[in-house]
Design a protein around this nucleic acid. Sequence first.
RNA 1: GCCCCCAUCGUCUAGCGGUCCAGGACAUCAGAUUCUCAUUCUGGCAACAUGGGUUCGAUUCCCAUUGGGGGUGCCA
Length: 524
Amino acid sequence: MRDGLSKDLIERILGGKPKYTLDELENLFPARNLPDGAFVTRFAPSPTGFMHLGGLYGALIDYKLAKQSNGVFMLRIEDTDTKREVKDAVQIIIDSLKKFGLNYNNDEKYGPYFQSQRKDIYHSVVAYLLEQGLAYPCFLSAQDMEKIRAEQASAGFPTGIYGEFARDRNLTNDDIVAHLDNGEVPSIRLYSNGNPEQRIFCKDAVRGSISFPENNEDIVLIKSNDGLPTYHFAHLCDDHFMRTTHVIRGEEWLSSLPLHVQLFRMMGWTAPLYIHTSTIDKIDSETGKQRKLSKRHDPEANVAFFLRDGWPTDAVIDYLGNIASSGYEEAKNKGVVKNFWEYETKPKKIPMSGALFDMKKLEWWSKEFIASLSVPELVNYVVDWVRDYGDDVHKMQVADVNYLTSILAIERDNPKRVRKDFITWHQTLGEIAYFYDDLYVKNSEYEFNKTVLNDFLSVYDENDDKDTWWNKIVEIAEKNSLKNGDVAMNLRVALSGRTNTPDLYSIIRVMGGARVRDRIQSLL
RNA sequence: GCCCCCAUCGUCUAGCGGUCCAGGACAUCAGAUUCUCAUUCUGGCAACAUGGGUUCGAUUCCCAUUGGGGGUGCCA
């Protein structure tokens, strides 16, 4: 602690009178009136133009914990880094959350929800700190800090602005005025009273109690270039005044936990409970080592990828949800819950080690989900996807909804034996492409038995029921001394161009007499 | 360098001192069913990182080592 600054000086430093006193802020953002045990959570992304899968994972936990406790889930935009801001980024975040059904509830009373619009709040709090001598204006330039860092590095000291290296922590009022008169704009730093020789004990809801050396760095609270807060200071003010009860964030924040706890203690505020989630990783193909999914190298790191490729959002939720609460999968398989929302997520059970992203497992969730759909539901999903992401070919495929419906209905009548060859909406359309004349490609490698094809054509009646039809196949086989399967295969390849398809009879029925005849005829 | 977190089958995990020669799921491999494929069914392979403790007894507790991840910014 140092001498506090006068109100006048603070006003000059901050470029204006603080709008609120601490008491006024407390009254402005009163405790929330929520049932016992309700979680108030928030998803707080930076608008970088990219929604990371890890971000979606965190948001899912936020939403789930709030929902299952009848609490509140908020979306707060952390746009304090004006340099990194990307246009449309906020919209991407909002759209993504919406697509995945993670609906936030931003009560205006606790807003605004853009950090860039909360300057009055941050400045009011920092004014208090300045007055108490818990913070001070710092006029260190980038070059100054560069120099300090270099010296520390060569001397083997930890880098940073702390203790004796914090040049401006004991500036007199006259010094400050002189700098100000000189046109310099200071950043506001914390006057840290931490002693790294001592340990601070922090609680993480997943890991339990963790101890760190106390923080002694005079970290920046308010940046000089734009007067906006750093993450740490914004977190302190926002999560206090938004009355957040649980902060769910990536484990990259674990190291700053002691700082955050120090900040809350300094203000005399109770800190929220922290849940640090592990990263979602993959094995780097070049180094062979495990690493976080990367925005630059891994398309699957981007939530937009799953939307574009038409992965069922419910499957992605199931996959991610099962990572967050591993008992879910078994509960669902045993039928004790119908979906992830019915399964209770326990904060303590959220895993703390990084999980490898498993595309195969996601595929499995996806197949299971699609198999559980009724035909009309399936058709709707496909049509909706085409509307948002489909190209001209896809649009052509869904133009005749009746035809599409009859195709997708194949081998779906027995709920116990539904085909599971659909994974994504995009892939589904690819899978059934041969039903469309424009997309059907003749199989040039297969050696057709033209006698068989001719024989079939001569007895084919599109109104035959399955038994009648099959008997004809058997007869053709006998006549040509072939196996039944050989005859079926000739027809299969002729009609679809492929050697493996769903039930042949169903295909023939769906394609209809004219198309069947045409395709076979064209091969003779 | 310093600080912090983590460590069970190939993968995600169950396990919270004896119930474990470790259970489930995905993947994989066999076999059965089927006109092909997909389904479905049956079965198989497969793990407690290592070394010390503590204990009558360690996958479970403690320590060390190793390995992996993160932090060390006026980015979040």
